[in-house]
Structure formats: structure tokens, C-alpha cells
Design a protein around this nucleic acid. Structure first.
Lengths: 236, 236
DNA sequence: CCGGCTGCTTGACCGATATCAAGCGCAATC
DNA sequence: GATTGCGCTTGATATCGGTCAAGCAGCCGG
């Protein structure tokens, strides 16, 4: 029953435009849950009993196809919502959410959503905005997959990860959670092998520094150049 | 000032849960606009002055990349909303909407959206649902592009088009608007040439019947088989 | 401290699909 | 009814990146 501190969430997009009292009312209904590294917040196909806000840590949303192939939908950063299936009219989660680091989420019962929205209509418009943003981002991904080579796509993916979850370190910007070549392959529609080869190449050129589930961008600007390079541009 | 007939729109998802009076209030503010074949409803990058509901015809939403490549985002069927940029927090249209047939749209000024939503909160939740659905569909597309061969992707695309805009004809199901090989290429992330070759092959096998900007599915079920065929399944 | 798992690397090969190139024919326009 | 353009077809060739295969190495658990 420990109440959640308002200051933790007051500035999140989901709660934009709410005053302290309203926030308090909404938070009344939330439970805070610890999710250990490598355990699921929810699983694809499961009944969408709750929706969440990530408070701390990092969560990977992924989908499996009927034939067993897996793709990474996105990485969730602290402050973002996840599992809003009910709000968009789904009874079941369309993807699996796995903590890639020890994480903390706020959870509301999906059943409470209609009531919350009725009392606090801004919840709907705020959620509409974030779902709209995700739609834009997903379209960007489709465009990239349609028009760019693997090298450009991976460069873009790394830059996005760094922007979203970059931590400054001495030698550059580190991606602040464990991520494998396989994960990157599943984000960019390619294979583990190709990612490995490309990253090895970049490491040789000093663009990045990498290890087991670890990537540090040493020369982000060089990566930007790579990412924007036209398919046949051999000017380096 | 000709008022729009309520019965035309009462059953659309955007207006789910509204009674006649409310609908009337909303429709007061709409203008009905004819859009001739091959003209734009709105253009990518343009200020998002209005949002729309397609009443009649078919509209193609497409995006151009900085480097000039074009991709088709989706085809809009009658009853669907388009140009809801403002609702998802965008000041400008993220894509171009072009009528592929003579079409009729209802248009509201984007500026009216906040006021409409305040008076009719269900507009927000209904829009949230449709944007959520589009997000799902776009994820499906990403999954397909990541895991399937061109042949499967094109088969899926045709089946989806037929489902969404199929018209029964003697020889099968026709896609009810002009669509070129180029369009299909831009929907599936491939090239005009590959689409042409594949369709030629299917036509030979009697699966489809096609002509200039025209495609008729003769054997939808065979296409389903093709679409679901595993990458190396040579069982035909 | 050791063993084994899991993530990573690297080579060789191959094949799906893009690219390059040429030409055809329907259909709209004047 | 002629003309021209646009959508389509089809061949030849090139290549990116996937697949197959083998081995390495950092890290966790015992």
C-alpha cells in the first residue's frame, strides 16, 4: 500500500496536464512492481490484465511469428508506457515485454482504464499522442527497411539507442543496458552474422568499442555520416 | 452549407457510441470535399490544417525519403480517417494522401479538434483505437519485411488489398482501384521489376489475372498457401 | 579455480533480388 | 486515327547479405 511519490511521475508525458490531486487519484490505483533482469513483464498472447509505466530499468518488447522467428519491436526507456493493449482495443498483449536490466514498473489493472479515462480524459489524449509517436517511429523503420542497406540501418539503430539510452563514458557514449548482436539483428531485419561483421569492421576503424552485450559509440558523428551515406557512395 | 446525412457516417468507428444529436453537432463543422483522381488530399510536410474521413473512393498515403525514394504507407478505404496529424501531436502531415479514384472526404479544421475532443471525449478514445490498430498493422509489416521473402510479402499484400478493397467479379476478386506494380513494390519494399516477374509467374499458373493497373485474384486460397509457405518449402 | 554455456567471430559459399538494359503495347490525347 | 507516353515485360548480370560451418572467449556457477 506504500503510495507512490508524485514527483517521480509528474513530468511524464502520460500525466501531462494533471495537477497534484489528480495525479494522486491516479496513482492510488497503481502498484509498483520489481521485475528482475531477464524476466517478463508480460507475454505475447496473454490476457492484457494490466498496463504499465516503466519507472526504472530497461525493457525489450519483442514479437514472435507463427514460424518462431523473433523480432524486437522496441526498447522501452524509463518514463514510457507499455502494455497499453486495452487502450487500443486489444484483449491480449501483442508482444512480450522482457526486462533487460533489473527494472521497476508501475502497474494499473486494465479494467480500470475505462474508468480512469472517463474521470481524466487527458489520459486518452496523452496516450493518443504517444501511440501516434510510436506509429511514426514504426513507419520510419519501414521506410528504412525498404530503402536502406543493412549498414545504414544498423548505424541508425545504434544512434537511436544511444540517443534513447546513452550514458556518457570516457571513451564515448555507451548504450546503457546489455544488448547482443542478435538483438540488433532483430531490430534491423538482418542476421547475427552480418551485425557481427559490420561491428567488427567499425571497431577496427575506431568508430565503436564493443564487447559481450556491450557497445560504446566512440565517434557518433562518423556513424551519422555512415547512416546517411547513399547506397553506392564510396567516398571514404 | 449543405448538411451531411447522418446515416452516412453513423456506423463509422470514429463515431462509435454517439447519438444522433451528438453526431449532428460534430457534422455541423465538417465540409464535404470532392477530390479528383490523382490529386492530393494533403501533402507531406504541409501544415496539418485539417483532418478527414474518407466517404467514397480510395486514397493512397505515401512518404518520400530525404533521398527521394517513395514508399506507400497504406491505402485508405471508405469510412477510415486520414490526416489525424494534429491528434497525435504533429503540426505537419507526415505523408502525402493522393486520391487514386475520384473520392469524397469530410474535412474538419484541425483547430477544431481540441474543442471537439473536449465536448465529445469518445472521439479521442475512438481515434486511439484506430491509431492503435494502425500501429499493429505497421508492426506486422515490419515483421514480414524482417522474416519473409519477397514472394510471401507480395502475396500477403495482395490478399490484404483484396480483403480491404475487393470486389467480386466473375473470375474472382478484383482490387477495386487502379494499382500499379510500382505501387505494390513500394508497399512491400521491393522493385517494380521483381513484382512484375512474380505476378507474371502467378498469371501463368492461373492464380491471378492482371493488366494495366489492374489485378484480379482468381485463386485466393492458392495465394494464401503461397503467403504462408516457409522460405525453403518447395512442396508444389 | 575449473567447466561449460552463451555470445561472438570469421571463412567459404550461394542464392534471392537488385540493377542494367531493351523493347513492347495499351490507352489517353489531340 | 495517329502519336506519344506510361506501365509493363523480360533477359543478362552483379552483388549484398544470408546460410552453413567451425572455432573462440568471456563470464557465471559450482
Amino acid at each position: 500500500m506504500a503510495t507512490i511519490d508524485i514527483s517521480l511521475v509528474a513530468k511524464l508525458p502520460l500525466f501531462a496536464g494533471f495537477d497534484a490531486d489528480e495525479l494522486d487519484g491516479i496513482l492510488q490505483e497503481a502498484r509498483s512492481i520489481r521485475v528482475a533482469k531477464n524476466t517478463a513483464v508480460f507475454e505475447q498472447g496473454e490476457e492484457a490484465h494490466s498496463f504499465f509505466v516503466l519507472l526504472h530499468g530497461h525493457v525489450r518488447a519483442s514479437k514472435v511469428t507463427p514460424t518462431g522467428e523473433q523480432i524486437v519491436v522496441r526498447y522501452v526507456a524509463p518514463g514510457e508506457t507499455l502494455g497499453v493493449a486495452m487502450a487500443i482495443g486489444l484483449a491480449r498483449y501483442p508482444a512480450t515485454a522482457t526486462a533487460v536490466d533489473d527494472s521497476i514498473v508501475l502497474a494499473w489493472l486494465s479494467a480500470a482504464w475505462p474508468r480512469l479515462v472517463e474521470r481524466y480524459p487527458a489520459l486518452a489524449t496523452n496516450t493518443l499522442r504517444t501511440v501516434g509517436t510510436r506509429l511514426q517511429e514504426t513507419h520510419t523503420r519501414v521506410v528504412e527497411m525498404s530503402t536502406q542497406q543493412v549498414e545504414q540501418r544498423i548505424a541508425h539503430a545504434l544512434l537511436r539507442l544511444a540517443k534513447q539510452a546513452g550514458r556518457k563514458v570516457e571513451s564515448g557514449v555507451a548504450i546503457d543496458f546489455p544488448i547482443s548482436r542478435q538483438d540488433i539483428a532483430q531490430m534491423t531485419g538482418t542476421t547475427l552474422h552480418t551485425v557481427s561483421r559490420l561491428l567488427s569492421g567499425w571497431e577496427q576503424k575506431g568508430l565503436i568499442e564493443s564487447g559481450r552485450q556491450k557497445i560504446i559509440l566512440r565517434e557518433p558523428h562518423q556513424l551519422v555520416v555512415l547512416a546517411e551515406q547513399a547506397p553506392d557512395d564510396t567516398s571514404s
